[in-house]
Write a protein that binds this DNA or RNA. Structure first.
Lengths: 235, 235
DNA sequence: CGCCGAATTGACACGGTTCAATTGAGGTGG
DNA sequence: CCACCTCAATTGAACCGTGTCAATTCGGCG
């Protein structure tokens, strides 16, 4: 649950009492295996959920099999936080790894003047806004950047997000994505993702081992994708 | 003002009385020339505005000059409708043509139980959601589609949106964008946009003349970008 | 008529894709 | 503990969609 506390309190200050209440929800956690569909495109969204552990991604698949990944869902992230509150999901959300998540309580079920209610509601709104920031950055990657720049840019975003929830630091973080997933996110072929990663390794910018990424020179990486460097977390 | 009425009432039913009130705002319309910045990235958004006439686009420019257009703002569209309500603009909004827009009234200035207030508030929320739909479609274009498919896909989106506000029909609509703008939106070079348009003309799928696009065979165009065909307007 | 931005064209270079193997690593059953 | 299986990562070579550069033409407007 640690990532959940960290992530939510990065969005809005949470009191010890609220954290305690949230902790109570852990019992309701639902587990899913890799590949499980957590949300289906076109379906009305249920109440927002928070990921406790594991990664997921938002994606669409075209009839001919081409896949586009719109973004990744990391531990602590709020799913189903979209603009204008509830609505229909714009993409499928699929677990990438084994994943555990909890549904946030229906706001109507919390007393209206409870601090928890306002804080959860605010956190969900801010999460929605950040999802939009990620979408914009993603469009920059796809529309403006070269393969090398896209990869550097995405790695920096993931590092930043993982660090916020305490699952990584300035230099390293766990990265369970296959090169195929990276390819479908970055609009590249798997083969080219492979070669791009090799180039980053050859130039001593990153290392990959044991499901972890190590950023050897984050500054250089940033300058690769500079001017579009992932936005720091602000609300 | 016609496009504004059409667009808003496509989002939420408006009574005659409400349309009358909105009409009163026309006097407050603000005009801008092509290239004028309507909203600056990072700046706190002001109250939402509605475009009465003219086109704009959301864009970011990288230090080296590369430009990415995230989407276009058409007559009747609501600007500053983003997830989680107000916040900082995620991109610059720049007028593409001469443009006239009106700020929507501050919600606090309308009596809380007025139907106008709830309807405007709902319309803004739904507009925010649709903006997100457009963003997702845009990502599909950039990440998954070839040049020809991207162009077809975008033209279909624009046709649809222009038709909703009564500025076009199933076959034709005014299109003030330069090929350079199209290129920066679609992640292509100007030269290639030119060749792509030529190919569409050669294959008798479209015609362009007098600042208007004529879709000769929308079905074929749709099948070009199929499976990702622009989503119809739903809320 | 003459100007200027936009559209168009041609030749060429290159980033990225495709196809088809091959290698490597984690997990399972005997 | 090893053989085996499977999926992910890696490699090479050929191909092609787009980009780049540099003119040239077109079209609207003063």
């Amino acid at each position: 649950m640690e990532p959940v506390y960290r992530r939510l309190s990065a969005l809005t200050p949470l009191s010890y009492e609220e954290i305690r209440v949230l902790g109570g929800f852990e019992a309701r956690a639902r587990d899913h295996g890799p590949g499980a569909t957590l949300m289906t495109e076109g379906r009305a969204t249920t109440r927002p959920s928070v990921v406790v552990s594991g990664w997921a991604c938002h994606q669409r698949i075209m009839p001919d099999g081409r896949r586009q990944i719109f973004g990744f869902v990391l531990p602590g992230d709020v799913m189903g936080a979209w603009s204008g509150g509830r609505g229909r999901a714009l993409a499928n959300t699929v677990a990438v790894t084994p994943l555990s998540m909890i549904e946030l309580p229906e706001l109507d079920h919390i007393s209206p003047d409870s601090a928890l209610r306002t804080n959860i509601s605010r956190a969900v709104k801010l999460a929605a806004r950040q999802n939009e920031v990620f979408l914009f950055d993603h469009i920059m990657r796809l529309g403006c950047l070269t393969a090398l720049e896209r990869m550097a840019h995405l790695l920096l975003e993931l590092r930043q997000r993982m660090a916020v929830v305490g699952l990584g630091d300035d230099r390293r973080f766990p990265m369970p994505l296959t090169q195929e997933s990276l390819a479908d996110a970055l609009g590249l072929s798997t083969v080219h993702v492979n070669r791009t990663l090799q180039q980053l390794r050859r130039e001593r910018l990153i290392e990959i081992a044991g499901g972890e990424v190590l950023l050897l020179d984050a500054d250089l990486l940033a300058s690769l994708a500079d001017g579009t460097a992932p936005h720091p977390f602000t609300s």
